[in-house]
Amino acid sequence: MDLSDIRREYTRGGLRRNDLPDSPLQLFEHWLKQAIETKVPDPTAMTIATVDENGQPFQRIVLLKDYSDDGFVFYTNLGSRKALHLKNNSQISLHFPWHFIERQVHITGDAEPLTKKEVFKYFTSRPKESQIAAWASKQSERLTARSALEGKFMELKQQFAKGEVPVPTFWGGYRVKPKSIEFWQGGEHRLHDRFLYQRNDDDQWGVERLAP
């Protein structure tokens, strides 16, 4: 299979320095709203990258559940591979691949565990089936067969049929405090627009254009 000729032109418009707000969070919110309005599939899906003790990077897709000036929030099993990586190395990378609107956002930063109050508030807002699934799955551990996972889910569904599902002690989340946020806008003839915001020592944002 020859992949060398698979390409397309990016024609949806550019991104100029004068269009940039002082805070990257403002631009991120604007782009996220546009991704939702244009019905980009899974607009809150982001690839997150962590590194193990040997320096081996790992990537997976999770859903963004909140964002603010304080950072970007996601939830996970605290026994998962990504959580174990973050316990030893809090540095993380997030990537939003909004190809449908010819945009990408790349974030680097440090992941900080959420408080128990934050975790409880989000967990209790989830559909009951999702709460039960959190109990059923020992994320990243080996499974003999899918039937084992389904069987555990059905067992727990009966167990919690008449009551509330408690928050598992092994379930939580992280807030990623960003150090840098890069915005990529596709351009014609591969002349893409890239702007990198970086947080300086005074906790302010500087911005510069990068070559595509």
Rank of each mutant, 00 (worst) to 15 (best):
residue 6 I to P: 08
residue 6 I to T: 11
residue 6 I to S: 10
residue 9 E to D: 15
residue 11 T to R: 05
residue 14 G to A: 08
residue 15 L to S: 10
residue 16 R to H: 14
residue 18 N to Y: 11
residue 19 D to E: 14
residue 22 D to L: 12
residue 24 P to A: 04
residue 26 Q to C: 08
residue 27 L to I: 00
residue 27 L to E: 05
residue 30 H to P: 00
residue 33 K to P: 00
residue 33 K to M: 08
residue 35 A to C: 06
residue 36 I to P: 07
residue 40 V to L: 10
residue 41 P to D: 07
residue 41 P to G: 04
residue 41 P to Y: 02
residue 43 P to N: 06
residue 44 T to A: 03
residue 48 I to V: 12
residue 49 A to P: 05
residue 51 V to A: 02
residue 52 D to K: 01
residue 53 E to I: 05
residue 56 Q to P: 00
residue 56 Q to I: 14
residue 59 Q to I: 13
residue 60 R to G: 03
residue 62 V to C: 02
residue 63 L to F: 09
residue 67 Y to V: 09
residue 67 Y to M: 10
residue 69 D to Y: 07
residue 69 D to K: 09
residue 71 G to W: 09
residue 71 G to T: 06
residue 75 Y to V: 02
residue 75 Y to D: 01
residue 75 Y to N: 01
residue 77 N to M: 05
residue 80 S to I: 00
residue 86 L to Y: 03
residue 87 K to R: 15
residue 88 N to Y: 10
residue 88 N to K: 14
residue 91 Q to D: 06
residue 93 S to K: 06
residue 94 L to Y: 09
residue 94 L to K: 04
residue 95 H to V: 15
residue 96 F to C: 08
residue 97 P to S: 10
residue 100 F to N: 04
residue 101 I to E: 08
residue 102 E to H: 03
residue 103 R to P: 09
residue 103 R to G: 07
residue 106 H to L: 13
residue 107 I to A: 11
residue 112 E to H: 15
residue 112 E to I: 09
residue 112 E to M: 14
residue 113 P to A: 02
residue 117 K to N: 12
residue 123 F to D: 02
residue 124 T to L: 02
residue 129 E to H: 13
residue 130 S to Y: 10
residue 133 A to N: 13
residue 134 A to Y: 05
residue 138 K to Q: 12
residue 140 S to P: 00
residue 141 E to L: 06
residue 141 E to Y: 06
residue 144 T to I: 04
residue 148 A to F: 07
residue 148 A to P: 00
residue 150 E to L: 15
residue 150 E to A: 12
residue 154 M to A: 15
residue 155 E to H: 10
residue 158 Q to K: 15
residue 159 Q to C: 07
residue 160 F to M: 10
residue 161 A to L: 14
residue 161 A to P: 02
residue 163 G to E: 14
residue 165 V to R: 01
residue 166 P to W: 05
residue 168 P to A: 05
residue 168 P to M: 03
residue 170 F to M: 01
residue 170 F to C: 00
residue 171 W to D: 01
residue 172 G to I: 04
residue 175 R to Y: 02
residue 175 R to S: 09
residue 176 V to Y: 07
residue 176 V to Q: 05
residue 177 K to H: 13
residue 178 P to H: 14
residue 179 K to L: 14
residue 180 S to G: 11
residue 180 S to W: 01
residue 181 I to W: 13
residue 181 I to K: 06
residue 182 E to Y: 03
residue 184 W to S: 02
residue 188 E to M: 13
residue 188 E to H: 14
residue 189 H to K: 12
residue 190 R to G: 08
residue 191 L to M: 15
residue 192 H to Q: 07
residue 193 D to Q: 04
residue 196 L to Q: 11
residue 197 Y to E: 08
residue 197 Y to N: 09
residue 197 Y to C: 05
residue 200 N to P: 10
residue 201 D to H: 13
residue 203 D to C: 06
residue 203 D to Q: 15
residue 209 R to F: 09
residue 209 R to P: 05
residue 212 P to N: 13
